[in-house]
């Protein structure tokens, strides 16, 4: 395990994954990631899905430190 299983310079078998097979998962992952970015980065700032200020306040410090405009 600690040693590489191939001699130096030998190309390890690196198969291409099929885009045709994987695009639905990619699409879904991107949408989920966008949702996560939205709730951490913008909810109850510029726009609100939920009323109030609790989501904004809960992720407030992370939003600032990750670089999103906060208020």
């Amino acid at each position: 395990m600690s040693h590489s299983t191939t001699a130096p310079g030998v190309l390890v078998e690196l198969p291409k994954l099929s885009l045709r097979e994987s695009w639905p998962w990619v699409l879904f992952a991107v949408l989920i990631a966008l949702l996560a970015v939205y709730f951490v980065g913008a909810e109850q700032g510029a726009t609100s899905v939920f009323a109030g200020n609790a989501v904004h306040e809960w992720v407030h410090d992370a939003r600032h430190l990750l670089g999103f405009p906060c208020h």
């Binding site: 994987s22 998962w25 990619v26 992952a29 991107v30 989920i32 990631a33 996560a36 970015v37 709730f39 951490v40 980065g41 306040e57 809960w58 992720v59 407030h60 410090d61 992370a62 939003r63 430190l65 990750l66």
Partner: peptide, 19 residues
């Protein structure tokens, strides 16, 4: 709160990076 934001964003970005 800080932990929630970091873990959620980190996991989402990690999953994307993996794919």
């Amino acid at each position: 709160g800080l932990a929630t934001g970091m873990l959620v964003l980190g996991t989402a970005m990690g999953g994307l990076a993996g794919i």
